[in-house]
Design a protein around this nucleic acid. Structure first.
Lengths: 236, 236
DNA sequence: CAATGATTCAAACTACTGTTTGAAATGAAC
DNA sequence: GTTCATTTCAAACAGTAGTTTGAATCATTG
């Protein structure tokens, strides 16, 4: 009764013959992706998800046990798509170019793909209102990306990825990008011309890269001017 | 029935003698501030607010008609505190110093004041999940601050406040600061050492100022190198 | 003191949430 | 065609939300 981890009891044997069944399970996941991306975990309702999936209200509990398990499954599916982030593994280009490419890719995924970047939108909800399902995804998916991103930025400024300056820079960049997602509703009112056309999105991405690299290069050259291993400048 | 704007029907005459009554109304507002700052509009419950105010569950409806009106009133009260932003009006110091002071003040208010900056925290919830009450506050309170901030940044880079570059820079700065508020729960897991001590908060504020001014000064000098009125650089 | 209006209170009401239930439909295997 | 587990379904359940109600309390006024 307490154990929720192994839910689809009836589905465990996988009786080698199910077509319609697997269909609604998949449809539920698709509908749930959309709903959770739109309204977050608490905002999305099981009824809405089932309605959009063309399934009965009891379908969620039948296939996933409860809403949280469905949500966890959605996060897991997202994780599989996210973690094979092609650009993040490419070590042949300069870290500066990599940084620019990552920023652009993220923003494009958010605003210009035919159906917007659902994984990222769900993450944004988590960012503001974390759920119990977050811990696992955080460690499995988000942290590797975060660590890799710190390495890239660290490479640009010539500091280890654990250095406070590196982390502050990483969060400055993340903050800029996330801002356009998190604050979209209010941004639209504060800046009506911001319609997020593909052109505009690319310009925003370039701006964030330019804006950030200006400081990163400052740190880099400041470090060059001092003797290496002298890490106690900063915080004048 | 439809009109919700003039609710306290029974309170309109203000019969010149009410002490206990005004007391609970004020207590409700105080409790609501805290609750809305903690959980946002939807997350906060009327029952919790009344409990914290030591009032009956019906008190909210008696004094404010409904939850949304109470919330609007809270936002209005915040507006009165926010809009006389001392630092924002000071035009004697350099815009750079002003920018730095504003960033520091905001972050300090968020993380180190004895009771944290409730207005700002409520705004952060609005930022992610806007409510119908937002429109009025947006125009009355947030937009003037936003416009003034654009002027300050515009003064630094020598561009009008409506220029796209100015706006992009403004949002880059806002994004950085908001990031530490919005993403606090997840930041705490991604970066456990970030305990937001007063020292650390000041260091973050300085970093955001340094990070941003690096680019702003780039734009300024880039504009100096070209003939004035030539606005069509940028977006190489 | 009686009366009047403002305020408080406990309880119920309505609506919505996630969840459970038990019967009905489905479809493959014998 | 019967059997059997899987899947679907409508309905109800339990819990919580905001809101309403009508009587009880209180304070002030005539």
């Amino acid at each position: 009764m307490n154990n929720t981890s192994d839910y689809p009891l009836s589905r465990r044997p996988v009786p080698a013959t199910r077509l319609a069944g697997e269909g609604t399970r998949e449809k539920l996941l698709d509908a749930a992706e959309q709903a959770f991306a739109d309204h977050g975990f608490e905002g999305a309702t099981v009824r809405e998800i089932c309605l959009r999936a063309g399934a009965n209200i009891a379908a969620v509990n039948y296939y996933f046990g409860d809403k949280l398990n469905l949500y966890t499954e959605v996060l897991r599916r997202f994780a599989r798509k996210l973690d094979v982030e092609a650009a993040l593994s490419d070590r042949t280009v300069s870290p500066e170019a990599l940084l620019r490419a990552i920023i652009r890719m993220r923003l494009r995924g958010m605003f210009t793909s035919q159906n917007p970047d659902l994984p990222f939108r769900v993450m944004m909800h988590e960012w503001a209102h974390p759920t119990p399902a977050m811990d696992r995804v955080l460690n499995d998916t988000l942290r590797p990306l975060y660590d890799r991103f710190r390495e890239i930025v660290g490479a640009i400024i010539g500091l280890p990825r654990d250095h406070e300056t590196t982390r502050l820079c990483v969060h400055s960049i993340m903050g800029q990008a996330i801002h356009y997602v998190q604050g979209r509703p209010i941004l639209a009112k504060l800046w009506p011309e911001l319609t997020m056309t593909p052109d505009q999105v690319d310009r925003i991405a370039d701006h964030i890269a330019d804006f950030s690299l200006a400081y990163l290069h400052t740190v880099k050259s400041a470090r060059r001017r001092v003797t290496p291993d002298a890490r106690e400048r900063k915080r004048s």
